[in-house]
């Protein structure tokens, strides 16, 4: 029950977020709050702006206008030390993006040690604990090129967790995987959700959205078109676009 203690603390607040790439208006005014412990799952057709929205949350994309607050701090303010903010927000990418030049262990401990958040021994110990949690302890000395996609993505999750983030962002974490490897990654994510982590997940895995999400959002044309609990979202979709979308993907 400890997970719900801070249940109504707003970790992320997004106000009227816009993002333009030259003439392409990708986000057209997104407003949203993420509360602590929530698992927000974002679905929508490709080109709907869902990945851009996620990448704006840790400013990998710079918003054109609007505000993003994280932990009570306005992070869209140019004076904010964004590197510091990012240490509290883990991100997992579609293409894993493990550092190819480093062993798995070094991938995991690079950021904590170089940012002087942990000593080397402490970081290694933590890395081994996390690796054991995802069942990959024996891969500590391997290199990314020796791992399967599913293993890489589990390592990528561990790498983010090693920073003790407050929030985890997932950008289509299973889209680049062979079908038989999707399950192992989703299992890790489910376990993470159960541990109380605040998560924002962009995905096409409707089963995951239904099972793990506390809220499901439907994005299209750069706005959040519909937001609901998973049950209502899938059983009783309101807007026409979502009904069309669900009829295609389910």
């Amino acid at each position: 029950m400890e997970n719900w203690r801070g249940g109504c603390v707003r970790v992320i607040i997004v106000k009227d977020l816009h993002k333009k790439f030259e003439d392409n208006h990708v986000l057209r005014g997104v407003d949203y709050h993420v509360h602590q412990g929530e698992k927000i799952v974002i679905v929508g057709p490709s080109g709907s702006g869902k990945s851009t929205f996620l990448r704006c949350l840790n400013l990998l994309e710079t918003p054109s206008s609007g505000e993003i607050w994280f932990d009570g701090q306005l992070i869209t303010d140019p004076k904010v030390d964004i590197d510091k903010v990012r240490t509290h927000m883990g991100m997992v990418f579609q293409n894993f993006n493990l550092f190819n030049n480093l062993s798995i262990m070094d991938n995991i401990i690079l950021a904590p040690t170089k940012l002087k958040l942990m000593g080397k021994e402490e970081a290694k110990e933590k890395a081994l604990t996390l690796l054991a949690r995802v069942g990959l302890k024996e891969k500590a000395d391997a290199f990314p090129s020796q791992l399967s996609g599913g293993q890489k993505q589990r390592i990528a999750i561990v790498r983010s967790l090693a920073m003790n983030p407050r929030v985890m962002l997932f950008d289509e974490p299973t889209s680049a995987l062979d079908p038989e490897m999707v399950g192992e990654v989703l299992d890790v994510m489910k376990e993470l959700a159960e541990s109380g982590m605040t998560m924002v997940v962009v995905t096409h895995e409707m089963g995951f959205a239904r099972e793990v999400g506390t809220k499901v959002l439907f994005m299209d044309e750069g706005i959040i078109m519909e937001e609901n609990t998973p049950k209502e979202f899938f059983n009783n979709p309101q807007c026409q676009r979502l009904q069309d979308f669900l009829s295609k993907v389910l």
């Binding site: 990998l60 903010v85 927000m89 550092f99 983010s160």
Partner: peptide
């Protein structure tokens, strides 16, 4: 060097310079 390498480094809170030195330049 794949842009994703830089993005992963930055998303972990590494600065532009640190990402360059530890991740991009060795590759």
């Amino acid at each position: 060097v794949d842009k994703g390498q830089t993005e992963a480094g930055r998303s972990l809170g590494l600065s532009k310079a640190k990402t360059m030195i530890y991740i991009v330049i060795p590759q």
